[in-house]
């Protein structure tokens, strides 16, 4: 188990170093930072002085090492577009994205798992078939089209919910939350529904497939033979084994939610990190792009690693496999 843990962590560190290398290359080869720091009339000597002061005359691997050291402390320099520290920009935007992603993830679990169980227990019923069909549409619709349709129906035609922004937010320290006001909560509804829809259908389908598989196994047959009530068989015995793969997929998809939040934030003009990233992409603002890339990768790597470890804790078979593979 310890060997597995160490191997997994070393692997994660390599991934992060690779991502940092990409970020570093972006800095190094997209535009000459010296040009933006000196006057246009500067002489070659003045340019060289700036180059030396910035450490750009040193070998690439030294520069890379310094870049990693600074990135590890969260220092990505100034945004090229609005000349503010990138770390401040990201910190301002982080709460909006985090709240959106958390609510969407929660919704997809709270709705997806019960619907999956329902469709697995009564596969032929009308409600189950309707749900299957609706979920097919849910998977096929591009997310931004879903978002536009939601706005068209609930904001333009019915005028029930706001179509942009976070509503009124309350600042708690550096964290600004929309959870504490009515308008903040109302503003969360449409974006989080849009964001969770794809994942919800995925979880529903997964739970359904796993549950049907588990219900066919011997231990469930034994439980039935022992005369246990259905409720106990379904929810105490079957559900437990169903949820293991759900945890993995959910973890992996959590990263996907952060990426897809880029689209949601654009549709709903949500002031999060994704919207910041899109602006950076369209202006070629390297420091913001690089910092976003490193931050999101870090989140991904942490999630993926913890899911793998959690999986090993939950499923003893995997531990045995890992031990065997190590020898």
């Amino acid at each position: 188990m310890l060997g597995f843990l160490i191997r997994r962590i070393i692997q994660s560190i390599f991934v992060m170093l690779a991502v940092a290398l990409i970020a570093f290359m972006m800095f190094r080869f997209m535009g000459d930072p010296v040009n933006s720091m000196v006057a246009e009339t500067a002489t070659t000597e003045e340019r060289e002085a700036v180059r030396e002061r910035l450490g750009l005359d040193q070998p690439l691997w030294v520069q890379y090492g310094r870049f990693v050291a600074r990135a590890a402390q969260g220092d990505f320099g100034l945004s090229w577009r609005n000349a503010r520290p990138v770390s401040t920009l990201l910190a301002e935007r982080f709460p909006a994205t985090a709240e959106l992603v958390l609510v969407a993830a929660g919704l997809s679990l709270l709705v997806g798992i019960p619907l999956g169980i329902l469709t697995a227990l009564k596969p032929g019923s009308l409600s189950a078939q309707t749900l299957q069909f609706v979920s097919l549409i849910g998977i096929s619709l591009p997310t931004f089209v879903t978002g536009i349709l939601l706005i068209l129906v609930f904001s333009v035609w019915l005028n029930w919910l706001p179509s942009f922004g976070r509503g009124t937010v309350v600042d708690i320290g550096w964290w600004s939350t929309g959870f504490l006001t009515v308008s903040g909560l109302k503003a969360l509804i449409l974006p989080s529904v849009m964001l969770c829809l794809f994942q919800l259908t995925l979880i529903m389908r997964l739970v359904r497939a796993e549950m049907m598989e588990v219900l066919r196994t011997d231990y469930i047959k034994f439980a039935r033979a022992r005369g246990l009530p259905n409720r106990s068989i379904h929810f105490r015995h079957a559900l437990k084994n169903t949820l293991i793969p759900v945890i993995t997929i959910f973890g992996l998809q959590l990263g996907g939610l952060i990426a897809f939040a880029i689209i949601t934030e654009t549709v709903f003009q949500w002031p999060g990190m994704g919207a910041l990233f899109i602006q950076a992409v369209s202006f070629g603002d390297v420091p913001v792009m690089a910092a976003y890339l490193v931050l999101v990768s870090l989140i991904f790597v942490v999630i993926n690693t913890s899911v793998d470890l959690l999986y090993a804790v939950l499923d003893p078979r995997l531990r045995a496999d890992a031990a065997r593979a190590a020898h």
């Binding site: 990409i22 972006m26 990426a259 880029i262 899109i278 992409v281 390297v286 890339l293």
Partner: peptide, 13 residues
């Protein structure tokens, strides 16, 4: 989508 955005951003830069 994230990878595509990144390549796009680099090309634009």
């Amino acid at each position: 989508i994230l990878v595509a955005l990144l390549v796009n951003g680099i090309a634009r830069g």
